[in-house]
């Protein structure tokens, strides 16, 4: 019995039994017919997949190309990308700073970063909206000291959504980066400088290899959940758009079209799975 099999078994087994197996059943739903009040009827149908790209005419049943769902997918991926970049720009310096604190302070900083997450995301997002809006404390303070005449448009726009995304995901970038940076032997970098390595060389040959596992981990932890998240646009953006997360939720709730919801999520899973496979392959090759 190889030790590594024994070590892998609990986690892989748990995920395969309690996640992959149930999901496989739901994936099957995507090729069935919706039942009247939610759920499915066991009659095969490809309608859910056709609908992703085509609109069926009510009268003559002809199909026309429809980009509604592609737009929603594009918007959701864009949102995830923006979230990842914002969290990276703020998270990397923060993680670096924390990792270079004296031993006793490090875990204190880490917990400081996670304490706000004891408050539910919905509650935090609503509080953020109340701070940013026209009648919120920021605008009132600016007005009171005479800096602005009217309220600054802080809420209900892309700026607010960006802030919301950072507040949703920041620790998911900071913590893995911290874990990677913390073990960094800073004398290496100092040695590189002593050897008159130029800055580019020092960064690409000494710093980046150290950061890489943290960047991959943090990137995955922000980007993938970022595709499905919708609280920031819903609350801080004024709820004027649909994200993939809302769209899928809607199919299992009000619209009562489980097969379409299952089809959407199957496509999403397939795309992320392929991307993940490529990343894993690459990471493995570079390690070797």
């Amino acid at each position: 019995m190889k030790l590594h099999r024994l070590l892998l078994a609990p986690s892989l087994g748990t995920i395969l039994i309690f996640m992959a197996l149930p999901i496989a059943i739901t994936t099957l739903y995507s090729v069935l017919t919706p039942a009247q009040y939610g759920g499915v009827i066991w009659e095969p149908s490809s309608e859910a997949y056709i609908r992703l790209l085509f609109e069926r005419d009510i009268f003559d049943d002809t199909l026309t190309f429809n980009t509604d769902y592609l737009q929603i997918l594009g918007r959701s991926v864009l949102q995830a990308g923006v979230a990842t970049l914002l969290c990276l720009f703020i998270g990397l310096p923060t993680a670096w700073f924390i990792a270079t604190r004296p031993a006793g302070q490090k875990s204190l900083w880490l917990m400081l970063v996670t304490v706000p997450y004891w408050v539910n995301l919905l509650v935090r997002t609503i509080a953020l909206l109340l701070i940013l809006r026209d009648e919120g404390p920021i605008n009132r303070a600016l007005h009171a000291i005479g800096l602005t005449d009217g309220p600054l448009p802080l809420a209900y726009n892309n700026f607010a959504i960006g802030l919301g995304l950072v507040s949703s995901f920041l620790p998911f970038m900071i913590l893995p980066l911290y874990a990677a940076i913390e073990r960094f032997d800073f004398s290496l970098l100092e040695a590189a400088y002593d050897l008159h390595a130029n800055r580019r060389q020092a960064f690409f040959e000494v710093v980046l290899p150290i950061l890489r596992p943290g960047l991959i981990a943090g990137g995955l932890l922000v980007f993938i959940p970022g595709i499905g998240s919708y609280l920031a646009p819903d609350i801080l953006g004024g709820g004027k758009t649909l994200m993939l997360g809302n769209l899928i939720g809607m199919q299992f709730q009000g619209s009562r079209n489980w097969p379409f919801g299952a089809a959407l999520s199957t496509i999403l899973m397939a795309v992320t799975l392929i991307a993940l496979f490529i990343i894993a392959r690459r990471a493995a090759r570079e390690d070797a």
Binding site: I15, L16, A20, T26, L220, G249, A280, A283
Partner: peptide, 21 residues
């Protein structure tokens, strides 16, 4: 690669789908 994909699989499934499944 395969084990890596399985370990990260829970990240990829939309929450509502995990919930119903």
């Amino acid at each position: 690669a395969a084990a890596y994909a399985v370990l990260n699989f829970p990240l990829m499934v939309p929450e509502i789908v995990t919930a119903i499944a």
